[in-house]
Design a protein around this nucleic acid. Structure first.
Length: 558
RNA sequence: UGCCCGAUGGUGUAAUUGGCAACACGUCUGACUCUGAAUCAGAAGAGUCCAGGUUCGAACCCUGGUCGGGCAACCA
């Protein structure tokens, strides 16, 4: 196997480590990863980065990747989240080797805890939370030792037993590792291993009244599963000495010993990424749910019309490193456009319709015109679109007093109706508000598309035949926040930066009839406008399209 | 004022491990165009946080600073 040889792309720092390990035949040349979400919320694009990293590395180096739910805190975790997480990972296109739970290891963890007690390396502390936290000291000053720190092993054993048996109330006791209260690393100041929690666990029910803390569970879970490279985000860097300390006590010779490696989490401009903040948006109904198309959640992006391929491509583009970063949301948008451009059929949809009447086109006549479905994909074929005397075009495509560089319709101007004819604006009608109500045009029968005419006009418009048009609702989504870094302001709440126009709902949009049977999730390009997909709330009676992302627009930008 | 990380165009990531900074997004030109899209061609934009040092040669090594992030939950 020569992973990197047919790929000239340079390695990121984690791949470099892995290839070194492989070369040294560390862990018998095997690599095993895991993605370890806590089932306390929905996955977001930041998790996607981690998923793509772990599963991607497993694929690249012919290894395995587990899915492990880090479910050590029953007060926050729910099955609903387990299910959504699995769905999202599968949707992204990855398959885990084993579906596991940290709670699978509660017995083993308990055994290890007892072992540490017996070795005099753990003790039961009966002080209050406040007391313990006070003794912990501050980063710049050492802590002080608990009065219970040196109680006899037998007593510790007995008390720990009581904790497990549910004989003591929540918060009354904890099991602590005996390490070093004066360590400059706060996490080494006798960290808590177990707390008493009389809570029902989503998997173990009421079996336990004590639950291990992250630090006592994570590394050992990795070890049990034979994980070789345990990848996590930077905030766990300071935990690594503790991760290693537990393994030093418990790991046996000859078994793969996991190595924790930290990388920088993803930050995206114009959004927030913390589960807490996302939960807030959901709870306060500032969005419609975890899968609101404006959310950076996987389910939100899916509903918005993103493809798994585009997200994986994005994850690939942003790279892996250790420095803090903020990725321009434009890069995400570029990634979807790139994919959608290749795969979506082009269709006509008029979002803000205004009627065009072609005065020299026979009344009652209609013809079927042949349109190319996707110029990027010959296999996509063609479709028939009805043309008739009365059409809808976009309001934006007509101006009473257009500037020179406006290539669209205006009094006396000519444009091509895509796939149809060149028309000329002869007249128009306004209502009392100055709103254009009807535009009168003549068409040139000699200019039918495909007839070989050479006459050129600068502008090309999309259109929909009035009598054949499908009525639809279209939801235009924009970024959720107006500020590049809504969570980055010390004195302002991130919600102050919500974009009031992040959703515009348009009714009575006019679509070409081929969209009649569009199904949930179908993706199309409304020509000249953007990429859209059929929302889950859509029905044949009431079509609803979400705008995934607009087309690049070098006209509007000026 | 402790400890741990980090610092390369506007944004991200690279640089064959010491050999005169590359790629992508973005921006700007232009070509093409029956999508002002896509595509194609080109341009601008950093001299690698700063100051020393080692070296024929430093983004890479050393020293000292500066700035940014993280760490004081019975959360993960």
């Amino acid at each position: 196997m020569e992973p990197a040889e047919n790929n000239t792309r340079s390695l990121n720092f984690i791949e470099t480590i892995i290839e070194e390990d492989l070369q040294n035949n560390k862990n018998n040349g095997e690599v095993h990863f895991r993605f370890p979400p806590e089932p306390n919320g929905y996955l977001h694009i930041g998790h996607a980065k981690s998923i793509c990293l772990n599963f991607g590395l497993a694929e690249k180096y012919n290894g395995l990747c587990n899915l492990r739910f880090d479910d050590t805190n029953p007060t926050k975790e729910e099955t609903e989240y387990v299910d959504s997480i699995k769905e999202d990972i599968r949707w992204l296109g990855f398959q885990w080797e084993n579906e596991l739970f940290a709670s699978n290891y509660f017995d083993q963890l308990y055994t290890w805890a007892v072992q540490l007690i017996k070795q005099g390396k753990a003790y039961v502390d009966e002080q209050s939370q406040e007391e313990i936290s006070r003794q912990k000291g501050v980063p710049t000053r050492p802590g002080t030792e608990s009065p219970y720190r040196n109680r006899p092993v037998e007593e510790n054993l007995l008390l720990f037993e009581k904790m497990r048996n549910g004989e003591v109330p929540d918060g009354s006791m904890v099991l602590r590792a005996k390490i070093d209260m004066s360590s400059p690393n706060m996490h080494l100041r006798d960290p808590i291993m177990y707390r008493v929690l009389h809570a029902e666990h989503h998997r173990t029910g009421n079996k336990w009244s004590i639950y291990p803390m992250y630090d006592f569970a994570h590394g050992q879970s990795d070890y049990i599963e034979g994980i070789t490279h345990s990848l996590c985000t930077l905030e766990f860097e300071i935990h690594r000495p503790l991760y290693d300390w537990f393994l030093d006590q418990l790991a046996e010779e000859g078994r793969p010993r996991p190595r924790q490696i930290e990388f920088a989490r993803l930050n995206l401009s114009y959004t927030v990424m913390s589960k807490r903040k996302l939960l807030k948006l959901v709870e306060e109904n500032l969005v419609t749910g975890w899968d609101d198309p404006r959310m950076p959640t996987i389910s939100g992006l899916r509903r918005r019309g993103y493809t798994p391929e585009s997200i994986r491509e994005f994850a690939d583009r942003i790279g892996i490193a250790k420095r803090d970063n903020v990725i321009d949301v434009g890069l995400l948008e570029f990634s979807v456009r790139e994919h959608l451009n290749k795969i979506t059929p082009r269709v006509f949809g008029v979002l803000n319709p205004v009627k065009v009447i072609i005065t020299n086109y026979p009344e009652g006549k209609e013809e079927m015109l042949t349109l190319i479905n996707n110029p990027e994909d010959d296999a996509a074929g063609t479709r028939q679109v009805p043309f008739s005397r009365e059409l809808y075009i976009e309001q934006d495509d007509f101006m009473e007093e257009p500037p020179r560089k406006f290539f669209r319709l205006g009094p006396g101007r000519e444009v091509r109706l895509k796939g149809a004819y060149i028309i000329k604006c002869e007249d128009y009608k306004k209502d009392e508000n100055g709103q254009i109500t009807e535009i009168y045009c003549t068409y040139d029968p000699e200019t039918k598309s495909g007839s070989g005419v050479q006459r050129k006009v600068k502008g090309t418009l999309h259109w929909v035949s009035v009598q054949h048009a499908l009525n639809a609702e279209v939801r235009l989504y924009d970024r959720l926040f107006l500020d590049e870094d809504p969570a980055g302001h010390k004195d302002r709440d991130f919600k102050e930066f919500l974009n009031p126009d992040s959703l515009k709902v348009l009714q009575n949009c006019m679509l070409e009839p081929s969209l009649k049977d569009a199904k949930q999730g179908d993706k199309v390009q409304f020509q000249r406008l953007g990429y859209f997909c059929v929302d889950k709330e859509s029905s044949p009676e009431h079509l609803i399209f979400n705008r995934t992302v607009p087309l690049r627009d070098s006209w509007k930008r000026k």
